[in-house]
Computed example of a mutant assay.
Amino acid sequence: MMKKLIIIATYNEKDNIEKMLMDVFTSVPDVNILVIDDNSPDKTHEIVEKIITERYPDQLHLMKRSGKLGLGTAYIAGFNWGLERDYDVIGHMDADFSHNPKYLPSMFEALANGYDLVLGSRYVKGGGVVNWGLKRKIISRGGSLYAKIILGLPFNDLTGGFKCFKRKVLETIGINELKSTGYSFQIETTYKTYLNGFKIKEIPIIFEDRVLGQSKMSGSIFKEALLMVLRMRLNKNSFIRK
């Protein structure tokens, strides 16, 4: 049986975090969860600490950071934490229910059947988005298409943050050398995984825009992604490690 870890990075998610954690444990009872909280002003971490003490002392873990240090750095910290503790599979997802925990069993099943990275994909048959405006759709779909063309990747959703990796992928791609944040972080990890010959599968998900709280997406993150994709293409050969 695979030892599984899901990373959930939080910043001001007190309205969502308890239900999200319960839904993940309901969907995958044997999973472990690492919440990485960037010193949320709304005290998200206090809710997590209470759940650890009262319900899941062995399966739920908390990493508290000093401030808002960025999603990419949170995932890198989580990857390292998981590798140090010998997890076989390490995934990450959002705390706001845009990523539904009901898809986790299918993602883990794909890993058990020989895939090395599984992407929760909005842009394959059966996938989609709910409650998005036209601008958001254009930015997301356009960003994935742009990266797909520039990098020569055969995948449709390259900017999504619902992913599960086998540990050998993270050990190979140089997680401590990742340069990106936001959208481009997701592109970079998939690109490096692909270049190193690992098997990648997209499974369809319905992405529902958050109901509570505020989106973390910004124009600056999107612009960074455009530039980072070009840099990745120019540095392609340095990404190959296998």
Rank of each mutant, 00 (worst) to 15 (best):
M1H: 04
M1W: 00
L5H: 06
I6D: 01
I7F: 08
D15G: 07
N16A: 04
M20H: 02
V31W: 02
N32Q: 09
V35D: 07
I36Y: 09
N39I: 01
N39Q: 00
P41C: 04
T44Q: 10
T44S: 15
H45Q: 15
H45I: 04
E46N: 13
E46K: 15
E46P: 14
I47T: 13
V48Q: 10
R55W: 08
R55A: 10
Y56N: 08
L60Q: 09
H61M: 05
L62I: 12
R65V: 14
L71D: 05
A74K: 12
A77T: 15
F79Y: 14
W81F: 12
G82D: 05
G82H: 06
L83G: 05
L83K: 08
L83T: 11
L83H: 08
E84M: 11
D88H: 02
V89F: 07
G91Q: 06
M93H: 02
M93L: 11
D94Y: 00
D96K: 13
D96A: 08
S98A: 11
S98H: 12
N100T: 06
P101E: 07
K102D: 05
L104M: 12
L104K: 01
P105M: 02
E109G: 04
A110D: 06
A110V: 00
L111D: 01
N113Y: 05
Y115R: 01
D116W: 01
L117N: 04
L119E: 15
G120M: 06
G120N: 08
G120H: 07
S121E: 07
S121T: 08
S121P: 13
R122A: 11
R122I: 02
V124K: 14
V124G: 13
G127Q: 15
V129N: 09
N131T: 10
L134P: 04
K135F: 14
K137S: 12
I138Y: 11
I138N: 07
I139Q: 14
G142A: 12
S144N: 14
A147F: 02
K148L: 01
K148W: 01
I150N: 02
I150A: 00
L151G: 01
F155T: 10
F155C: 10
L158R: 00
G160A: 09
G160Q: 10
G161L: 04
K163L: 13
F165R: 10
R167N: 11
K168Q: 13
K168M: 06
V169Y: 06
E177Q: 13
E177K: 13
E177G: 13
E177I: 01
K179R: 13
S180V: 07
G182I: 06
S184H: 08
F185T: 07
I187G: 03
T189M: 14
K192I: 07
K192L: 05
L195N: 06
L195M: 11
N196Q: 03
K199A: 11
I200L: 10
K201T: 03
E202H: 03
I203T: 04
P204R: 11
P204L: 11
P204A: 12
P204E: 12
I206C: 05
I206P: 02
D209F: 06
S215F: 07
M217A: 15
G219C: 03
F222R: 01
K223I: 05
E224T: 05
E224R: 08
E224I: 00
L227P: 00
L230P: 00
M232K: 02
S238Y: 04
F239N: 05
K242V: 07
